[in-house]
């Protein structure tokens, strides 16, 4: 017979570190266990669950966020490395009711189906457009090559990035 259950205990509170960083344009001070990845801190300590777990091995891109404007895989980055950095997640793209032009284009063109890869793709595409306001198709393909999408076949995503780029000009 297996052991009988006892009332569960809360997780042992390890020693936490406190870090100051900018998240979606606002200063944040966050206390977390030092072994945590940026993905875990965003989701568990800052309640920003828009950024997704997909593989936790840096293979799928679902966890992509921008750190100082550059796309990183937040499942592979320790949050400790982000002191003083500016982090942008999918929650930081819209301005209130006003969607980012990329989000508008994704909505128009069906570039989000199940939506699970979408946050990582949106921020990665945002970084591309910030750097290349008029990207070529090969530049878009290359920029998004680390973000797996199983629903769309990617074509509607390219079209949405191109439409957002056109509208911004």
């Amino acid at each position: 017979m297996p052991p009988q259950p006892q009332p569960p205990q809360p997780p042992t509170a390890g020693s936490k570190v406190v870090l100051t960083l900018t998240v979606n344009g606002e200063a944040a001070e966050v206390a977390f266990e030092p072994h945590k990845t940026l993905l875990e801190v965003l989701r568990e300590d800052l309640a920003l669950t828009g950024t997704k777990h997909g593989c936790e091995l840096g293979e799928c891109g679902a966890c992509a966020v921008l750190v100082d404007g550059k796309p990183v895989l937040s499942c592979l980055m320790l949050a400790l490395e982000c002191g003083g950095a500016s982090v942008t997640t999918v929650e930081g793209l819209a301005r209130g009711a006003q969607l980012d032009p990329l989000q508008d284009a994704f909505a128009d063109l069906g570039a989000a189906q199940c939506g699970y890869c979408t946050p990582g793709i949106l921020v990665t595409a945002r970084a591309l457009l910030d750097q290349h306001p008029a990207p070529t198709r090969p530049q878009i393909e290359e920029a998004l090559a680390g973000n797996l999408c199983r629903c769309t076949g990617y074509l509607s995503i390219y079209q949405a990035v191109e439409q957002a780029a056109r509208k911004a000009r």
Binding site: L48, T49, T51, F106, D108, G110, A112, G115, Y116
Partner: peptide, 20 residues
């Protein structure tokens, strides 16, 4: 191709999957 109902929450990162 009317606006898709499911799109807004997914695009804002507000759609709630089981992990969320």
């Amino acid at each position: 191709s009317v606006p898709r109902r499911e799109a807004d929450a997914k695009l804002r990162g507000q759609a709630r999957y089981v992990g969320d």
